[in-house]
Amino acid sequence: MRDNAAVPGAVIEARGLDLVFQTADGPVQALKDVNLTINKGDFVSFIGPSGCGKTTFLRCIAALEHATGGSLTVNGMTPDEARMRRAYGYVFQAAGLYPWRSIAGNIRLPLEIMGFSKAEQAERVERVLALVDLAGFGKKFPWQLSGGMQQRASIARALAFDADILLMDEPFGALDEIVRDRLNEELLKLWARTGKTIGFVTHSIPEAVYLSTKIVVMSPRPGRITDVIDSPLPRERPLDIRDSREFIEIAHRVREGLRAGHGDEV
């Protein structure tokens, strides 16, 4: 495993990763021979139909699932070690804010668990609230905020303890398209400002192309990578870049990749 960590700039390194779930109906191959290198500062999207293992792969990085074969390193460590060293913040599809805590209280929660001092907690909460454009909303309770604002609060919570990696599992999947566009734009700005490495699961082609520096196309049964596209788009991306020729070409290639993966399923 150690030799993989030697790849310069590699934050996440998967080599021949396999994951087999033992279910009541027999073994299910969730991931098969996944090879991927994610470099520092990359914005990587995982796209594919349901059952392609995109979420499972993200959960392997987070040490919420454990691979049954191959190797996976995060910051040069095993995923479990990386988790213990707070290598990543995780954002789920639902905001999952605790209804009995204020927004500030929710963002403070991981800081309390990790044992930051009271003064540092308050300082960090203010900082990340400003980062996601929620300054002044700390005292509100989750039910007083819209779905988009709740999801921003959950991103702030994942950013609060300075993890270098942000893992996002369909974070905007439950939001309407207008809110989604705005949050995508804001996420890009946030990424530019913080220089985090982001792993982003989605099933929206435009979202993947708009956000990513690297698009990983996956296909199901067994879950595997069919294509990895390094995006030629500039890092600065206004929303109307989505009408440009390059954008449409990449989107086309993603669609081709998805179709190819679908074809040999039959």
């Binding site: 987070a62 040490a63 919420l64 988790r83 213990m84 707070r86 990543y88 913040g89 995780y90 789920f92 599809q93 639902a94 999952g96 605790y98 009995w100 929660l109 991981p110 309390e112 668990i113 990790m114 303890f161």
Partner: peptide
Amino acid sequence: MQLDLMRTWNAGALTSFAKLRLPSSM
């Protein structure tokens, strides 16, 4: 999902109990 979130913060069973399970049960 909420239990997974606790695991991503490397919270132990006791912490999850105090911060999540107990308040949820009220």
